[in-house]
Each structure stands twice: as C-alpha cells, then as structure tokens.
C-alpha cells in the first residue's frame, strides 16, 4: 500500500474543509467529500486502504469539533467495511449500483453526524439539508465514476491486443 497518495488525499480533505467547502456550498448545502473519497477508495483500491484512510479522515473531519470524533470514526469505518462487503458480493460494474450504494452511505453518515449534534427538528434537517446534500454529492460522484470508467475503457482500447 503506497502511503503518499493517501496523505495527499488527507490534505485534499483539509483543503476542502478549510477553503473549498465554503466556495461550493449552495444554499447551505455542500458535498460530503469524506464519504465520497472512502467509497472511491473501496471501489477502486482495497478495504485495508479504506479502513486506515477512514480513521484518519474521521480525525480530520472532526478536528473542529472533537466531540463528534467517535461518531465520525465509527460511521466512516462502517462505511468502508460495508462498502467492501457489498463490492465482494454484488456486481458493482454498473454505475447505477455504485451510485445507489454511495447514496445509502451518504445518508447513514449524515444522519449519524446530525444525531451526534442535535436531534431537534430532525425531519426538517433531513429534508432541507441531508437529502439535497446527498443529491449534490451523488452528482459529483456520478461525474467521477463516469470519467473514471471512460478513462479505463480508453486505456484498455489503446492497449495492444
């Protein structure tokens, strides 16, 4: 397992939380980059890499609110493990199946973090922020999956048979 790319991914997360998040937020709704990155690592790399990465990503995501760190660790490690089990048992070549799984994880992670902060007006938060945030992240995820799939297709087409 090469470690340097993952350290760069962690810096990307810190960049997202400190600068990028504010820029790409639309009406208070932003993407959940942490879950998206963990899902990408599980789908395209290994469970081991995703597990270590999820623990480090949880610490980075909870830097500004250490009280939510345990929830981040458990929910993100859970995402890594369950995503890997689904990858082993299901055919994830289809873009739609990957997006459905990603959507499920986004909902689980956001619900866990919202619950760790406050359960007041949960239904409102769920409809106003969590669902649009999930949709926004899925759109970004769809773009990444789409370009990544097309790149591998191009690569295999260019390889000499």
């Amino acid at each position: 397992m090469k470690i340097i790319p993952y350290i760069l991914y962690l810096y990307l997360l810190a960049f997202f939380y400190s600068i990028l998040s504010e820029i790409i937020t639309i009406y208070g709704v932003t993407i959940d980059l942490t879950v998206l990155m963990i899902a990408l690592i599980v789908f395209y790399k290994s469970e081991e890499a995703a597990l270590w990465f999820s623990s480090a990503a949880a610490i980075i995501a909870a830097t500004q609110r250490p009280s939510s760190m345990p929830w981040e660790i458990i929910s993100l490690a859970g995402v890594a493990v369950i995503a890997n089990q689904l990858k082993l048992r299901m055919n994830l070549e289809s873009l739609v199946s990957r997006l459905i799984i990603l959507g499920g994880f986004l909902l689980i992670h956001n619900i866990a973090i919202t619950a760790s902060i406050s359960l007041d007006n949960f239904a409102f938060v769920f409809i106003r922020y969590i669902i649009p945030g999930t949709a926004y992240t899925l759109l970004v995820g769809w773009l990444i999956f789409f370009f990544s799939d097309n790149r591998s297709l191009l690569k295999s087409a260019n390889e000499p048979s």
Binding site: L10, Y11, L13, A14, F15, Y17, S18, I19, S55, I59, I60, A62, T63, Q64, P66, S67, M69, P70, I73, I74
Partner: peptide, 30 residues
C-alpha cells in the same frame, strides 16, 4: 481501541488528535 480512547468521557485523546490534525493538515490552508 481508537474509538474507545476518543469516546471515553473526559478523554484528552480527541482534542489531542484534533490539535495534531489542525497543526499538520489544516495550518498550511489556514
């Protein structure tokens, strides 16, 4: 173990890790 260390009431591990992460990963962007 990491979860228990961070979740333990009154634990200083969470703030310590947060501070470490702020120093190493966040400070260049700040």
């Amino acid at each position: 173990i990491l979860f228990l260390l961070v979740a333990f009431p009154g634990s200083t591990v969470g703030p310590f890790l947060g501070n470490l992460s702020a120093t190493i990963f966040y400070s260049p962007f700040f």
